[in-house]
């Protein structure tokens, strides 16, 4: 019994290590490349491992580039992303709660309509969306930058949360209802606390989608001061071009790090929801 357990554990770790290596090695490769001098001609992969050639020169070059207000752009990205995530969490959880728990005429039809909006290719939405935002006079404003974003994922969010809310035992809200709680209070005090993993997942999705979106912020903004990090940095990728791998990779690392930090901060919510303890207690 003990022996099989050891073998099993070894197998699990072996698999995890193999999968982890495949997943993460390209990023190690990326980080190593970003440390190479800007004009380096990389002849052999082994050059990357030579710690003598490492330097932070590319980062310094990008971060101190004149005409590129990188701090302002990073703040724009943070502000826009947080607004989108909060807005989305709010409207999605309200709607998902109604779809999962409340009865009203046309509910299923409305839900199907919501999922339909997920199926429209975004490429072609850009033109009508741009015209809509322009008519509202919101071009080059934070509102114009923020509001159209969640269309990428509102339907996804409602769908995700609805599926999750449906798996929460009804006995929990029935108990609250007997105590005389309003619907809103049930959502806030019973459903949402039991759904942290799903909410964290949606927040992570919303964050990544917004943080890395390129096309919409490019169209919606004109002044440099309104640009987001992803758009701002792509100027480098273009001017320092296709095969200048060190610069490309350094720019990618700069966009990646904040997103990674956000993910790590959320990570503790991803698992161990209150559902289990709720069931047991």
């Amino acid at each position: 019994m003990r022996a099989t357990r050891v073998i099993k554990l070894t197998a699990v770790y072996a698999l995890l290590f193999a999968g982890g290596a495949i997943t993460v090695l390209p990023f190690v490769w990326m980080a190593l490349t970003s440390l190479q001098p800007r004009r380096a001609a990389i002849a052999s992969p082994l050059d990357l491992l030579d710690s003598e050639s490492w330097s932070l020169g590319n980062y310094e070059f990008i971060l101190t580039f004149p005409e590129l207000p990188i701090v302002r752009m990073a703040l724009n990205s943070v502000f826009v992303t947080l607004c989108v995530v909060l807005f989305q969490l709010a409207i999605c959880s309200l709607a998902a709660y109604a779809f999962a728990r409340l009865r009203f005429r046309g509910r299923d039809a409305l839900f199907i309509l919501v999922t339909l909006t997920m199926m429209v290719p975004t490429v072609v939405m850009i033109v009508p969306l741009f015209i809509t935002v322009e008519r509202m006079g919101l071009l080059d404003t934070y509102a114009g930058l923020i509001f159209p974003y969640p269309y990428l994922s509102t339907a996804f969010g409602i769908f995700l949360l609805r599926q999750h809310f449906m798996s929460i035992p009804r006995s929990l809200d029935e108990a609250a209802e007997l105590d005389g709680c309003s619907k809103l209070r049930i959502l806030w005090h019973v459903i949402l606390p039991s759904s942290r993993p799903a909410l964290a997942t949606l927040a992570a999705f919303g964050f990544i989608w917004t943080w890395t979106e390129f096309y919409w912020p490019l169209l919606a903004t004109s002044t440099r001061e309104m640009r987001t990090l992803e758009v701002g940095l792509s100027m480098f990728k273009e001017s320092y071009g296709g095969t200048n791998w060190p610069i490309q990779m350094a720019a990618a690392v700069i966009v990646l790090l904040p997103a990674l930090a956000f993910f790590l901060a959320l990570q503790k919510y991803f698992v161990k929801g209150v559902v289990q303890s709720g069931l047991k207690g």
């Binding site: 490019l218 004109s222 002044t223 440099r224 990728k237 273009e238």
Partner: peptide, 11 residues
């Protein structure tokens, strides 16, 4: 004069 840079010829 307000300058707008657009990154990338494709864009």
């Amino acid at each position: 004069i307000q300058i707008e840079n657009i990154p990338g010829e494709g864009q």
